[in-house]
Every structure is written in structure tokens, then in C-alpha cells.
Amino acid sequence: MPRRKIIPYNPALKELARKLRNNATKAERVLWHSLSGKQCFGYDFHRQKPIGNYIVDFFCQELMLAIEVDGVSHNQESVQIKDRQKEEFLNSIGIDVLRFQDSDIYPENRDALRAIEEYVIEFEKINKIDTPPTPSQEGTINFSAKSSNHIKK
């Protein structure tokens, strides 16, 4: 695998990121339960990760993947503009973004997990990485047959 890229970081955001981790939304807690402890194909995700002048909800450096969970406040035009600017910045430094609504995650989490797994499978195919099956591939997590198209290239 190629050498890990250095991710720009604003140390002034460290305390805010800690507060956001301690005050996670229900949807963020539900998704974190599925991503923590390298449960997703063995990849290490971090939550409320400062990158540049932004904080992403979840980040995996090996995948160069940020995951954003949007609540109702993201329906406001001013917030959507900031979200686009954030996503453009992340894309400019090589980070893909998967964006979900709270309803994609809570209460059942299936659509979000399916989209994340599809992203990882595609990433590994492109980068010729072979990993053992995750619990969801072995059938211990029951996903719906519905597939989400959240992957942005």
C-alpha cells in the first residue's frame, strides 16, 4: 500500500472536536457503534476528526474516506453551502466523502452500512487489496437488499 498521506490539521479545533465527540447525536452514536474497533473490514475510523479547518464526523486515513452525518440543520441553505465548501476542500486533498441523513442511519443503519461497505469493496478492488470478510459479509448483520448510491469520486 502507498505511504500514508499527511493530512492538514488545525490544532485550534482539537477541543471543539473533543466536545463534539462527547455530545454526539443519536445517529452518530449508532454509526460509531458499527465503525469503532476496526469492525468495517479492519479499517480504523476516528470520529470528529479535525482536517484542515474542518471537523469531519468520521474519518479513515487508510481509505482516505470521510463520512458525514447530516441532521435537520443541514436542510438550511447556508449550512448546505458550508457543506459543499467542506466537501470541495476534502476532495481537493484526496479525501472522498460519503454523506448520510440521520434517517439513513437511525433507527436501522442498514443503508449507511451498505453504502460504506460498497465504498470499501470498490476501494479494495481499485487498490488490489484482499481482506478477510467482515461479520456483515458472513451474515451476522442483516442488511436490506436496498443499495444506496452515496459514493462520490
Rank of each mutant, 00 (worst) to 15 (best):
D104R: 04
L13K: 12
E117W: 13
Q61R: 06
D57Y: 10
R47I: 01
K86Y: 01
I93K: 12
F58S: 07
N127T: 14
E138R: 01
D130W: 03
D44Q: 09
E62W: 09
E122H: 05
E15P: 02
E87N: 14
I141L: 13
Y43N: 10
F143H: 02
L31Q: 00
L13S: 12
D96T: 05
L90A: 10
K153R: 14
H74K: 06
E118H: 03
K14W: 00
E118M: 07
D44H: 11
D102I: 01
R21N: 06
K146V: 03
F123S: 12
F41T: 07
E87Q: 14
N127Y: 15
L13T: 09
F100I: 09
S148V: 04
F45R: 01
S73H: 06
A145N: 11
N53A: 10
L16T: 12
T131C: 11
E62V: 13
V56M: 10
A27V: 15
E117L: 14
S92M: 14
S147H: 01
E62T: 14
A115E: 00
R47Y: 03
L98I: 08
A12L: 14
C40I: 05
L98K: 05
H33Q: 06
G42L: 02
R21F: 06
L13N: 11
K19G: 08
N149L: 15
R84Y: 13
N149V: 15
N22M: 07
Q101F: 10
V56E: 13
S136H: 08
D83F: 07
D111C: 11
E138L: 02
K146C: 02
D57G: 09
I67V: 07
F143C: 00
I116T: 03
K153V: 11
K5F: 02
L20Y: 13
F100P: 05
F143G: 00
